[in-house]
Amino acid sequence: MIFPGATVRVTNVDDTYYRFEGLVQRVSDGKAAVLFENGNWDKLVTFRLSELEAVK
């Protein structure tokens, strides 16, 4: 189960963010908004829950 605050990895091989890890900001309607941070940039991207896996 994916909840806000969880760290997730993108599993969709066709996505630009494949294998990126980010922090879930919100979850609704089968989608999750994931925040990616890297140095001087932040990006908030929405994914279907089926495209994400929780990082242990």
Rank of each mutant, 00 (worst) to 15 (best):
L52A: 00
R48T: 10
T16H: 12
G30C: 07
F3T: 10
V45T: 04
R26N: 14
Y17A: 03
R26G: 10
S50W: 12
K31E: 11
V34I: 08
E37G: 12
F47S: 01
G5H: 02
N12V: 07
V24N: 00
N38Y: 14
S50E: 14
A32D: 00
G30Q: 06
V27A: 03
V10K: 00
G5S: 04
D15T: 11
K56G: 12
A32Q: 01
V24S: 00
F3H: 10
N12Q: 06
V10P: 04
D29L: 07
L35P: 00
V8C: 04
P4Y: 05
I2Q: 01
T46N: 08
V27Q: 03
V34G: 01
G30V: 04
V24D: 00
T11L: 07
L49A: 03
D42S: 15
K43D: 09
R26E: 14
R9K: 08
F3Y: 12
V13H: 08
F47G: 00
D42G: 14
R48S: 12
R26M: 14
Y18L: 02
V13K: 13
R26Y: 15
T46Y: 12
L52N: 00
V55D: 03
T16E: 14
T7I: 13
V55Q: 04
F47V: 04
T7L: 13
G39H: 10
V34P: 01
A33M: 14
V27E: 02
V13T: 10
R48L: 14
N12A: 09
L23I: 15
Q25W: 11
T46A: 05
L44E: 09
S28K: 10
A32K: 00
I2F: 07
N12M: 06
V55P: 03
T46H: 08
T11V: 12
P4M: 07
A54V: 15
V10H: 01
D14K: 12
D29K: 08
V24I: 04
F36Q: 00
N38R: 11
Y18D: 02
K43Y: 10
R19G: 15
G22K: 01
E53G: 04
V34N: 01
R26I: 12
T16S: 11
V27K: 02
T46L: 11
I2C: 05
Q25F: 09
T11K: 08
G5Q: 03
V34C: 03
N38K: 11
D15N: 15
I2W: 04
F3I: 12
T11Y: 03
D29H: 09
D15E: 05
T11Q: 05
G22Q: 00
A33E: 15
G39P: 08
S28P: 01
D14C: 12
E37A: 13
K56E: 13
R48G: 10
G22H: 00
G30A: 05
R9D: 01
E53W: 05
F47E: 01
L44Y: 06
A54S: 08
G39M: 09
D42L: 15
V24A: 03
V10D: 01
N12S: 08
G22M: 02
F3R: 11
G22Y: 02
V45S: 03
D15Q: 08
L52R: 00
L49G: 02
F20N: 06
P4T: 07
Q25M: 15
R48V: 08
T46P: 04
A54C: 11
S28Y: 15
L49E: 04
A33G: 05
N40D: 12
E51V: 05
T7E: 05
F36T: 00
K56A: 13
E37V: 14
V10Y: 00
Q25A: 09
V8Y: 02
V27M: 07
R48E: 13
L35S: 07
D29P: 05
G5T: 03
F20W: 15
D29Q: 08
K31Q: 10
T11C: 08
M1P: 12
T16D: 11
D29F: 07
K43F: 12
T46I: 14
F47I: 05
V13Y: 07
L49W: 05
R9P: 02
Y17S: 03
N12H: 05
G22I: 04
S28C: 14
N38H: 13
A6D: 14
G39A: 10
R9E: 03
N38T: 12
E37K: 15
E21Q: 09
V27N: 02
M1G: 14
M1E: 13
L35N: 04
E51S: 08
Y17H: 09
F47N: 01
V27L: 07
A6N: 07
A33C: 11
V10G: 01
Y18E: 01
A33Q: 14
T16V: 14
F36L: 10
T11P: 02
L44K: 04
L35D: 03
E53Q: 09
N40H: 11
R19I: 03
R48Q: 13
E51K: 02
F36P: 00
V45D: 02
W41P: 12
